[in-house]
Amino acid sequence: MKRVVSVSLGSSRRDHRVEVELLGERFEISRRGTDGNFDRALELLKELDGKVDAIGLGGIDVYLYAGKTRYVVRDGKKLMDAVQKTPVVDGSGLKNTLERETVYYLREHTDLLPPGTRVLMVSAVDRFGMAEAFAELGCDLTFGDLIFAAGIPYPIRTVKELEELAARLLPEMSKLPFHMLYPTGKKQETQDEEKVKKFGHYYREAQVIAGDYHLVRRYMPRLDGQTIITNTTTADDVAFLKEKGAGCLVTTTPEFQGRSFGTNVMEAVLVALLQKPWEQITPRDYLDLLQRLDFKPRVVYLR
């Protein structure tokens, strides 16, 4: 049995463990949240190093992309460097392939994403592949990176402007403590009421809201049937989205026993299956494997 563990800076209330069979291999996949405790995450990573087949880093990004430039998040890299023997991934490799494919899939197989769809991405530098795919398919885009991470009411409308701002800001901002830029630990269980009130109109003006679930959740106002495209959701999350008035939920990662895991977990699973050093894995490797696994986005109508 292969063991894949996701160590997350997120809430331990979302911890989960499943056993699945993938391409004839048995997998035990688990998630262990550290409630925003960075040192606890470091300890846990060191403890697991060499004892499991692959590790995913959750609740934090290590690499952010804008165009061809990769930015390294200092706190995320510290966690990654704590692991010396076991392959460790943050999900960014898979996001660039799986999430891009999800957008193409929705255009081709559903009526959720016709040309001109108004899409709000709460944050795009953590899923640039998805952002590019939306742009490619002619969606009317709002990138909320400045709005939600920095509280600046400035919607970025094009991939080009996103790249330009990222080049200016990310080399330095990626050195800040991660909790200053992204909700970690208990913050993931609450909403930022002030920002919901101030910026909720961006959600209501959109037809599709996409991005990291914790960000999507934290600033979500009352909705009117919008589609949510995200990754990690639990049964409680689905109930939350229903209660808020979302019309449809699309998760980019497959469901295992009622739960869609984070991209970091899925990338760790793929790395364990590929048995190749991470730096030698190409997007093509992931795409081929995703096809063999027949992974498709999960579409759940909530109304």
Partner: peptide, 18 residues
């Protein structure tokens, strides 16, 4: 506040950042 600190950092990078 943390939000204000991020904002000040942001302004400085928007003026001088590359």
């Amino acid at each position: 506040s943390e939000d204000d600190i991020v904002r000040l950092d942001f302004i400085s990078l928007m003026i001088w950042g590359e």
